[in-house]
Nucleic acid binder design. Structure first.
Length: 261
DNA sequence: CTCCATGTTTAGAA
DNA sequence: CTTCTAAACATGGA
């Protein structure tokens, strides 16, 4: 799930549920998700503190405490948040569970444990340490164009490079390229100014529209590729069979009719 | 059993 | 130095 629109949806969810709650207890079911940070240090930095604000950058979600410290969520491929009230049971694969003073809880759920949950006292430094470029919704057309001019290789790979712009992954890069009528293996260095502009506009449009439906594929516009992004499916626009291809070990999908090379 | 899956990192080859 | 590929991480679902 978690690319920019999914993580933005998690942010809004967190804002509407766990924010302004004081942490009473921290259960770490999967200590390996904390990386180098010890369970004790993690618990010490959270217990007794209050979640006061949140920030998202690319695929990362930051929850700020009243003391200036930050809880950092990264979701890998299968991570999500679930807020629990009353006797509601924590879902299967809950890896971290924050319990609040009022009895409600926030579960960090992650089937495959590919993400991370850590702490940082400086978000900007954290972003720098992780080589993250500007958030995909923050950079302007000028930066977008000059980054395109500074790289070689396929446009899909370029869009997914978190050092260039943060937030776009395998699924949403396919959607953006589909909406922009660009073949995923089109060389980024050979994009015209006009194509770059279209790509930039479509990137915003796709991110905005998918955030508006909380990244739910079943609620996305009719002419979106994402709900048809599997083998044997057909293009929602022209009905041509969708092509699957491999790009550095991952599967990409496109319509050979709407996105000619 | 096999292959595939939304992410990131790393090693090695061009 | 840049770019690309495969593999690894951990775990399920088809």
């Amino acid at each position: 799930m978690p690319e920019l629109p999914d993580v933005e949806t998690f942010k809004q969810y967190l804002d509407h549920t766990a924010l302004h709650h004081t942490i009473d207890k921290v259960s770490v079911e999967a200590p390996e998700m904390l990386g180098e940070l010890s369970t004790r240090a993690f618990q010490r930095r959270l217990t007794g503190h209050t979640l006061e604000r949140s920030r998202r950058h690319g695929k990362y979600l930051f929850a700020g405490l009243e003391d200036g410290d930050w809880l950092v969520f990264h979701f890998g491929m299968t991570g999500a948040l679930k807020y629990l009230e009353g006797e509601e049971q924590a879902p299967r694969y809950t890896r971290i569970l924050l319990s609040f003073k009022d009895g409600s809880r926030l579960a960090y759920v992650n089937t495959r444990k590919l993400g991370k949950v850590v702490m940082t006292d400086d978000v900007d430094e954290f972003l720098h340490q992780h080589d993250l470029g500007p958030d995909a919704l923050q950079l302007d057309l000028e930066q977008f164009r000059s980054q395109a001019r500074a790289h070689r290789g396929s446009v899909k790979t370029w869009l997914m490079n978190q050092e260039i712009l943060a937030g776009i992954g395998n699924i949403y890069s396919d959607e953006i390229l589909f909406q922009a009528h660009l073949h995923p293996e089109h060389k980024v260095e050979s994009l015209s100014d006009q194509e770059i502009k279209t790509l930039y506009r479509k990137m915003h449009e796709v991110l905005d529209k998918t955030i508006a439906v909380h990244a739910d594929p079943s609620a996305m516009p009719r002419r979106y590729l994402i709900p048809h992004r599997k083998k044997g499916e057909h293009c929602p626009v022209c009905k041509t069979p969708i092509t699957q291809f491999k790009i550095s070990g991952r599967s990409g999908y496109y319509c050979p009719q709407c996105q000619p090379s």
